[in-house]
Amino acid sequence: MHSSCLISLALTFGALAAPGPTSFVLIGDSTTANGTSLNSGGWGNGFCASLSSGTPCINTARNGASTGSFVANGFWDAAIAAIKAEVGVGRRTLATIQFGHNDQKIAGPESMGKNLTSMVQQIRALGGEPVLLTSLTRRSFNSDGTINDTLQPWATETMTVASQTQTRLLDLHKTSIKYCEAIGPPYCHVLNKSPDDNTHLNEKGSTVFGRMVADLLVGSVPSTELPIITNAALSYNISHGIPSFYS
């Protein structure tokens, strides 16, 4: 049944038509951040690895961050500085924003929504292009094989902000749930940072979900405008609900 998943071991790469100068600034919590400790690890590394050589991909996401603490602890200032610098040298600068995991712990969705709206407005004022992402799913399953989802209200709030501010939206929450339910718990947990960590990603998980983000972006922006390297085998696995990297 899953013999075709072996195609993930033979990754097929091919460059798209050359885009103009583009850069990326990633903003979010530990499910975007580069994994540097046990309780961390997101899709950021995998996404940055999907870009053409020399494309700036600046990951300012931080472990434990909510939309409020990201600003209060100075990480927003770092993201703003990166956006200013990239816009200043004439690059089209896409700034991805993904929160929810930690906002969920401290306040209702509307609080996060106000903060997201402010972030979108500030990025636009700098000449950057905000891209809102709904939260990467946690990989906790019910007994029937469905995801035990508690993040949907925060995903819905992100979608509301995207609609109200006319901001590009990537529904990572919905797409990651669909994929995890398709491949099932054993294959999905291969992507965990540690066996019992259903939130953070190991290197394989970052590759899979980073590619998922890249594919969602390609579906939202004309592919010739993006410096994204294709990985047809992995994209096929994701879109067809086939596990990767499980051996």
Rank of each mutant, 00 (worst) to 15 (best):
P21F: 04
Y236P: 01
A232G: 14
M1G: 15
G44F: 07
P130R: 14
E86Y: 03
N63Y: 00
H173N: 02
S244D: 12
I242S: 09
L133D: 01
Q166D: 10
W43E: 07
Q152P: 00
A162F: 04
T60L: 04
A85T: 13
C180A: 15
W154H: 12
L133P: 01
I97R: 04
I123V: 15
S37V: 11
R124Y: 09
E86P: 07
A72N: 13
T150G: 00
L172K: 05
L116M: 09
P186R: 13
S37L: 11
F99K: 14
L201I: 08
I229P: 05
A49I: 07
R139V: 08
L133S: 05
S52Q: 11
L16D: 06
D171F: 08
P195T: 10
I7N: 06
F70D: 03
R139L: 11
L191G: 10
S53N: 08
T175H: 01
L136D: 00
T12Q: 15
I177Y: 02
N39I: 06
Q166N: 14
H189V: 05
T207Y: 00
R139F: 08
A33Q: 11
S66H: 05
Q164L: 15
G241D: 03
T160Q: 09
S135H: 00
I242C: 13
S163P: 01
H200S: 04
I80V: 15
S135F: 00
K105C: 02
T117W: 00
F70T: 01
R168C: 01
M1K: 14
D215Y: 02
F70E: 06
Y187P: 02
N148G: 06
G64S: 10
G42Q: 08
C5W: 03
C180K: 00
A78T: 10
V25K: 07
V120N: 02
